[in-house]
Each structure stands twice: as C-alpha cells, then as structure tokens.
Amino acid sequence: MHGEHDHHDHGHDHDHDAHDAIEADARPPTEFEMLEQAIRELLIEKGIVTAAEIQRQIDDMDSRTPMHGQKIVARAWSDPAFKGRLLANAKRVIHDEFGIDLERSPEVMAVENSAGLHHMIVCTLCSCYPRLVLGIPPAWYKKKAYRSRAVKEPRQVLAEFGTVLPDDTEIRVLDSTADLRYIVIPRRPQGTEGWSEERLAALVTRDAMIGVTEARTPATDPHREAPAVG
C-alpha cells in the first residue's frame, strides 16, 4: 500500500512540482489514495494535525521491525520462566522487559508451536497484525488471496511457503477478528543448545512469527561460518 505513506504536499491543480517527480507513480492514484490525500490535507489545513506530526508517525511506524519479535522469541527459547510470563500476558511482559511502548496497541497474545501443533495467523476481515512487535505487515499478508486461503486451505498455503508438516501435526489457524493480535513462538531448532539469545534471534524470521514457516535452522543461519574448503 502506497497510500498510507505517500506524502504529496502540492495542491489540487495538478501542477507538477519538483517534489512530485520523485513520488509520482506511472498509474493514476486509486480512489483510496485520493481519499487519503484529501483527508490528510484537510486535517492539516484545519490545524488538527501538522505535516510534521504525520511524518513523525510514519517514522515511528517504519522504526518498528521484526527485530523486536526476534529478540522476544529468542528469550522465550532461552528462558522458560520468561516464556511462561510471555504466554500468560504478552503485552505487559513485552512492555516491562523490552521497553516497547504498547500503550496504544491492542492486546497481544503469544502462542507457542510444539511437536504436533503449528499456529498460523491471519486476519480474514482486514489485515490486523502485531505491528508493535513485527513492524509493517508484508504485502501478501494483506492480500485477499492469503486472507481467504489461509483459513480454507492452510496446508496448501503453507506448502507454498515451503512449509510441509506431517498429518499428525494440528494446523491451528488463528483468525485475529477482534481486539487481540497474535505472535507465534516457533519451535526452537535442533542443534542450537547453548546458543546465546543474540545468535538464536537470527534464526527467528518474520514469517516464522506469522506461522507460515518454521524458524531457520543452524544450516540456514544467515550468520553461520562458511564451511572450511578442502
């Protein structure tokens, strides 16, 4: 979605200024983009918000990345007591122990995968997503294809993400229809005994925390040492 981040500040007379050139799309704006621009400009003209405040909010959104979630999962893998607190009250624990301000966030709930149980998150009604711990959702998460297929044929969707799970593993789709946002704690990969939280965090991907993949393994760790040659 470009609409929520575009930042045109020209008027409605279609004069193309220098600012326009770097943002202009080849296609005409959609109705939603025009609506967003009109409302934004009205709010600024009426003095309800300033352009700087909007920009700060965009910067704030952009500063949230899956890194928060990676650290949370790595600690949950390393510290059973922390994991217990996280599963019991994720929002408070993430605020208290990671300093992430969740005051304006909806409730957050962590769900844990295990042998025989795999969670997968979707929002069929819109695109609810735990932005404060995972950042901006990926484009596919907001598409109708994912939103409709995730609840109806989750195993086929998972297979398209390269995730094939045995029949005796329950696929538990969570449709975040209301006031809660979900984050998946994937299974800790084998062969990571004794790893530091920092090293473990590199194995935790955004997609694993949505539940469309499992965590990386030591073999697919992006920070692994290159095998000795010869």
Binding site: V151, P154, R155, Q156, D168, E170, R172, T177, L180
Partner: peptide, 24 residues
C-alpha cells in the same frame, strides 16, 4: 475453536486441523 472439517465440507487435510476466531 472449530474443527476445519466442520467449517469447510470440502476441507483437504487431517481431521485434527482447526481454525479459531475471537468472537463477541
């Protein structure tokens, strides 16, 4: 929580699969 085989009569997958939603 609902059994997938109940929600979708043509669900392709094992009978243990489920879907859950938050409902008022």
């Amino acid at each position: 929580r609902f059994p997938q085989a109940h929600v979708w009569l043509d669900y392709v997958g094992p009978s243990g699969d489920t879907v859950a939603a938050d409902l008022y």
